[in-house]
Amino acid sequence: MKALAARRHHRAAPVVLLLLALLVTGGVYAVLAPSPATAETASTATDVEEGQRLFQANCATCHGPNAEGTPEAPSLVGVGAAAVDFQVSTGRMPMQMSGPQAAQKPPQMNEEQTAQLAAYVASLGAGPAIPTEEQVDAELGDSANGALLFRTNCAMCHNAVGAGGALSEGKWAPPLDEVSEQNIYQAMLTGPQSMPVFNDANITPDEKRDVIAYLVEQRDGSAGGLTLGSLGPVSEGLWAWVVGLGLMIGAAVWIGAKSS
Protein backbone atom coordinates (compact mmCIF):
# COMPACT_ATOMS: atom_id res chain seq x y z
CA MET A 1 0.00 0.00 0.00
CA LYS A 2 3.04 2.18 0.30
CA ALA A 3 3.18 2.75 -3.43
CA LEU A 4 -0.47 3.65 -3.51
CA ALA A 5 -0.02 6.09 -0.67
CA ALA A 6 2.90 7.63 -2.46
CA ARG A 7 0.84 8.01 -5.58
CA ARG A 8 -1.99 9.54 -3.66
CA HIS A 9 0.32 12.14 -2.19
CA HIS A 10 1.99 12.63 -5.47
CA ARG A 11 0.07 15.67 -6.57
CA ALA A 12 0.64 17.64 -3.42
CA ALA A 13 4.19 16.50 -3.01
CA PRO A 14 5.86 19.21 -5.12
CA VAL A 15 4.02 21.93 -3.29
CA VAL A 16 4.95 20.48 0.09
CA LEU A 17 8.50 20.02 -1.03
CA LEU A 18 8.63 23.54 -2.35
CA LEU A 19 7.28 24.93 0.89
CA LEU A 20 9.77 22.86 2.84
CA ALA A 21 12.58 23.99 0.62
CA LEU A 22 11.50 27.58 1.03
CA LEU A 23 11.33 27.19 4.78
CA VAL A 24 14.74 25.58 4.90
CA THR A 25 16.26 28.17 2.60
CA GLY A 26 14.68 30.93 4.58
CA GLY A 27 15.89 29.39 7.82
CA VAL A 28 19.40 28.89 6.56
CA TYR A 29 19.39 32.38 5.14
CA ALA A 30 18.19 33.80 8.42
CA VAL A 31 21.01 32.04 10.21
CA LEU A 32 23.71 32.81 7.69
CA ALA A 33 22.87 36.30 6.54
CA PRO A 34 22.64 38.85 9.27
CA SER A 35 19.28 40.53 9.28
CA PRO A 36 19.68 43.70 7.19
CA ALA A 37 17.89 45.95 9.59
CA THR A 38 20.54 45.06 12.08
CA ALA A 39 23.29 44.50 9.58
CA GLU A 40 25.35 47.41 10.67
CA THR A 41 24.89 46.86 14.30
CA ALA A 42 24.80 43.10 14.48
CA SER A 43 27.83 42.40 12.37
CA THR A 44 30.45 41.54 14.87
CA ALA A 45 33.80 43.15 15.15
CA THR A 46 35.33 39.98 13.79
CA ASP A 47 33.18 40.26 10.65
CA VAL A 48 34.47 43.75 10.06
CA GLU A 49 38.04 42.63 10.71
CA GLU A 50 37.71 39.63 8.40
CA GLY A 51 36.05 41.87 5.82
CA GLN A 52 38.91 44.29 5.98
CA ARG A 53 41.36 41.44 5.39
CA LEU A 54 39.33 40.32 2.34
CA PHE A 55 39.18 43.90 1.14
CA GLN A 56 42.93 44.35 1.37
CA ALA A 57 43.46 41.14 -0.58
CA ASN A 58 40.83 41.59 -3.32
CA CYS A 59 39.71 45.18 -3.66
CA ALA A 60 42.39 47.53 -2.36
CA THR A 61 44.41 47.56 -5.59
CA CYS A 62 41.72 49.59 -7.28
CA HIS A 63 39.67 51.10 -4.48
CA GLY A 64 42.69 52.06 -2.34
CA PRO A 65 43.92 50.51 0.91
CA ASN A 66 41.22 52.25 2.95
CA ALA A 67 38.52 52.20 0.26
CA GLU A 68 39.08 55.90 -0.23
CA GLY A 69 39.07 55.47 -4.01
CA THR A 70 41.72 55.88 -6.71
CA PRO A 71 41.61 57.33 -10.22
CA GLU A 72 40.52 53.88 -11.44
CA ALA A 73 37.78 53.15 -8.96
CA PRO A 74 35.42 55.15 -6.76
CA SER A 75 35.58 55.62 -3.04
CA LEU A 76 33.48 53.13 -1.11
CA VAL A 77 33.08 55.25 1.99
CA GLY A 78 29.36 55.62 2.57
CA VAL A 79 28.15 53.35 -0.24
CA GLY A 80 26.69 50.99 2.34
CA ALA A 81 26.29 47.26 2.67
CA ALA A 82 23.63 47.07 -0.06
CA ALA A 83 26.06 48.24 -2.74
CA VAL A 84 28.71 45.73 -1.66
CA ASP A 85 26.25 42.88 -1.52
CA PHE A 86 24.94 43.76 -5.00
CA GLN A 87 28.35 44.08 -6.62
CA VAL A 88 29.93 41.04 -5.00
CA SER A 89 26.97 38.63 -5.00
CA THR A 90 26.38 39.20 -8.74
CA GLY A 91 30.10 38.64 -9.41
CA ARG A 92 30.59 42.12 -10.81
CA MET A 93 33.21 42.78 -8.15
CA PRO A 94 36.03 42.00 -7.84
CA MET A 95 36.40 43.06 -11.44
CA GLN A 96 38.53 40.92 -13.72
CA MET A 97 39.45 43.56 -16.24
CA SER A 98 38.34 47.04 -17.03
CA GLY A 99 35.88 47.42 -19.87
CA PRO A 100 32.90 49.56 -20.74
CA GLN A 101 31.24 48.17 -17.66
CA ALA A 102 31.70 45.42 -15.07
CA ALA A 103 29.99 42.30 -16.36
CA GLN A 104 28.03 39.86 -14.31
CA LYS A 105 29.94 36.63 -13.68
CA PRO A 106 29.92 33.76 -11.17
CA PRO A 107 30.47 35.29 -7.74
CA GLN A 108 34.05 35.12 -6.46
CA MET A 109 33.09 35.18 -2.80
CA ASN A 110 30.79 32.96 -0.84
CA GLU A 111 27.89 34.34 1.14
CA GLU A 112 29.89 34.59 4.35
CA GLN A 113 32.73 36.46 2.72
CA THR A 114 30.30 38.77 1.00
CA ALA A 115 28.64 39.54 4.29
CA GLN A 116 32.01 40.22 5.89
CA LEU A 117 33.04 42.57 3.10
CA ALA A 118 29.68 44.33 3.36
CA ALA A 119 30.15 44.69 7.10
CA TYR A 120 33.59 46.20 6.59
CA VAL A 121 32.45 48.72 3.98
CA ALA A 122 29.36 49.59 6.03
CA SER A 123 31.64 50.31 8.97
CA LEU A 124 33.45 53.00 6.93
CA GLY A 125 30.42 55.25 6.70
CA ALA A 126 26.63 55.07 6.85
CA GLY A 127 24.94 53.92 3.66
CA PRO A 128 21.99 51.88 2.42
CA ALA A 129 21.60 48.56 4.19
CA ILE A 130 20.76 45.20 2.67
CA PRO A 131 16.96 44.94 2.34
CA THR A 132 14.99 42.54 4.46
CA GLU A 133 13.24 39.53 3.00
CA GLU A 134 9.90 41.16 3.51
CA GLN A 135 11.02 44.22 1.57
CA VAL A 136 11.70 42.13 -1.51
CA ASP A 137 8.80 39.67 -1.26
CA ALA A 138 7.04 39.80 -4.62
CA GLU A 139 3.93 38.22 -3.08
CA LEU A 140 3.36 41.36 -1.01
CA GLY A 141 3.85 43.75 -3.93
CA ASP A 142 1.27 45.30 -6.25
CA SER A 143 2.38 44.46 -9.75
CA ALA A 144 0.02 46.98 -11.38
CA ASN A 145 1.67 49.84 -9.52
CA GLY A 146 5.01 48.21 -10.22
CA ALA A 147 4.25 48.18 -13.93
CA LEU A 148 3.50 51.89 -13.83
CA LEU A 149 6.73 52.72 -12.01
CA PHE A 150 8.85 50.35 -14.05
CA ARG A 151 7.55 51.81 -17.28
CA THR A 152 8.47 55.36 -16.33
CA ASN A 153 11.71 54.78 -14.47
CA CYS A 154 13.28 51.59 -15.78
CA ALA A 155 11.87 50.42 -19.14
CA MET A 156 13.83 52.88 -21.26
CA CYS A 157 17.05 51.07 -20.35
CA HIS A 158 15.95 47.60 -19.27
CA ASN A 159 13.14 47.14 -21.88
CA ALA A 160 9.43 47.01 -21.09
CA VAL A 161 9.60 43.59 -19.43
CA GLY A 162 13.22 43.73 -18.29
CA ALA A 163 14.83 41.98 -21.26
CA GLY A 164 17.73 44.44 -21.21
CA GLY A 165 18.92 47.04 -23.65
CA ALA A 166 21.85 48.98 -25.01
CA LEU A 167 23.48 52.10 -23.55
CA SER A 168 26.09 54.26 -25.22
CA GLU A 169 29.71 53.30 -25.94
CA GLY A 170 29.35 49.54 -25.45
CA LYS A 171 27.59 49.72 -22.11
CA TRP A 172 24.33 47.94 -21.56
CA ALA A 173 21.43 47.57 -19.15
CA PRO A 174 21.34 43.89 -18.24
CA PRO A 175 18.27 41.66 -18.55
CA LEU A 176 16.45 41.24 -15.26
CA ASP A 177 14.75 37.88 -15.70
CA GLU A 178 17.35 36.01 -13.66
CA VAL A 179 18.32 38.72 -11.22
CA SER A 180 17.38 37.93 -7.63
CA GLU A 181 14.79 40.08 -5.90
CA GLN A 182 17.44 41.21 -3.39
CA ASN A 183 19.72 42.38 -6.17
CA ILE A 184 16.93 44.23 -7.97
CA TYR A 185 16.13 46.11 -4.81
CA GLN A 186 19.79 46.87 -4.13
CA ALA A 187 20.36 48.11 -7.66
CA MET A 188 17.50 50.60 -7.40
CA LEU A 189 18.74 51.74 -4.01
CA THR A 190 22.42 52.15 -4.84
CA GLY A 191 22.55 52.90 -8.57
CA PRO A 192 25.42 50.65 -9.59
CA GLN A 193 27.65 51.76 -12.47
CA SER A 194 25.67 53.62 -15.15
CA MET A 195 22.37 53.18 -13.36
CA PRO A 196 21.02 56.21 -11.59
CA VAL A 197 20.05 56.05 -7.94
CA PHE A 198 16.38 55.62 -7.07
CA ASN A 199 16.42 56.38 -3.38
CA ASP A 200 13.50 55.85 -1.03
CA ALA A 201 12.16 59.34 -1.62
CA ASN A 202 11.91 58.77 -5.36
CA ILE A 203 10.69 55.18 -5.26
CA THR A 204 9.58 54.26 -1.75
CA PRO A 205 10.43 50.83 -0.29
CA ASP A 206 6.85 49.68 -0.92
CA GLU A 207 7.04 50.87 -4.50
CA LYS A 208 10.34 49.08 -4.96
CA ARG A 209 8.59 45.90 -3.87
CA ASP A 210 5.84 46.63 -6.40
CA VAL A 211 8.46 46.87 -9.13
CA ILE A 212 9.86 43.51 -8.02
CA ALA A 213 6.36 42.04 -8.11
CA TYR A 214 5.94 43.24 -11.69
CA LEU A 215 9.26 41.75 -12.77
CA VAL A 216 8.54 38.45 -11.05
CA GLU A 217 5.15 38.31 -12.81
CA GLN A 218 6.95 38.59 -16.16
CA ARG A 219 8.71 35.31 -15.43
CA ASP A 220 5.45 33.50 -16.24
CA GLY A 221 6.18 34.19 -19.89
CA SER A 222 3.69 35.45 -22.42
CA ALA A 223 0.05 34.48 -22.79
CA GLY A 224 0.60 34.40 -26.54
CA GLY A 225 3.21 31.64 -26.64
CA LEU A 226 6.98 31.81 -27.01
CA THR A 227 8.28 35.22 -25.95
CA LEU A 228 10.97 35.36 -28.67
CA GLY A 229 13.18 37.18 -26.20
CA SER A 230 10.59 39.92 -25.55
CA LEU A 231 12.75 42.20 -27.68
CA GLY A 232 9.91 43.79 -29.61
CA PRO A 233 9.31 44.34 -33.31
CA VAL A 234 12.83 43.63 -34.56
CA SER A 235 12.90 40.09 -33.30
CA GLU A 236 9.29 39.62 -34.40
CA GLY A 237 10.25 40.77 -37.88
CA LEU A 238 13.21 38.43 -37.94
CA TRP A 239 11.00 35.49 -36.98
CA ALA A 240 8.39 36.49 -39.55
CA TRP A 241 11.08 36.22 -42.20
CA VAL A 242 12.76 33.10 -40.88
CA VAL A 243 9.73 31.05 -39.84
CA GLY A 244 6.91 32.60 -41.88
CA LEU A 245 8.63 33.29 -45.17
CA GLY A 246 10.97 30.35 -44.68
CA LEU A 247 8.12 27.84 -44.38
CA MET A 248 6.07 29.46 -47.13
CA ILE A 249 8.93 29.53 -49.62
CA GLY A 250 9.74 25.97 -48.66
CA ALA A 251 6.13 25.06 -49.43
CA ALA A 252 6.26 27.01 -52.70
CA VAL A 253 9.35 25.12 -53.80
CA TRP A 254 7.51 21.87 -53.06
CA ILE A 255 4.45 23.07 -54.99
CA GLY A 256 6.56 24.09 -57.96
CA ALA A 257 8.72 20.97 -58.03
CA LYS A 258 7.78 18.23 -60.50
CA SER A 259 6.52 15.09 -58.88
CA SER A 260 8.73 12.07 -59.58
Binding site: A147, L148, R151, T152, A155, M156, C157, H158, N159, A160, V161, A163, G164, G165, A166, A173, Q218, S222, A223, G224, G225, L226, T227, L228, S230, L231, G232, P233, V234, E236, G237, W239, V243
Partner: peptide, 24 residues
Protein backbone atom coordinates in the same frame (compact mmCIF):
# COMPACT_ATOMS: atom_id res chain seq x y z
CA UNK B 1 4.74 32.69 -31.05
CA UNK B 2 3.63 35.74 -29.12
CA UNK B 3 3.65 39.01 -30.99
CA UNK B 4 3.14 42.62 -29.93
CA UNK B 5 2.15 41.93 -26.32
CA UNK B 6 0.78 45.41 -25.77
CA UNK B 7 0.20 44.74 -22.08
CA UNK B 8 3.99 44.60 -21.73
CA UNK B 9 4.31 48.11 -23.11
CA UNK B 10 1.33 49.47 -21.21
CA UNK B 11 -1.28 52.06 -22.22
CA UNK B 12 0.06 55.17 -23.91
CA UNK B 13 1.58 57.75 -21.67
CA UNK B 14 3.81 60.44 -23.16
CA UNK B 15 6.53 60.09 -20.56
CA UNK B 16 7.84 56.49 -20.76
CA UNK B 17 9.65 54.74 -23.58
CA UNK B 18 11.04 51.22 -23.70
CA UNK B 19 14.47 50.03 -24.74
CA UNK B 20 14.22 48.50 -28.18
CA UNK B 21 11.81 51.21 -29.34
CA UNK B 22 11.38 50.16 -32.95
CA UNK B 23 8.63 49.95 -35.52
CA UNK B 24 7.64 46.74 -37.30
Amino acid sequence: MSINNVWNYGPYDPSPVGAGAQPD
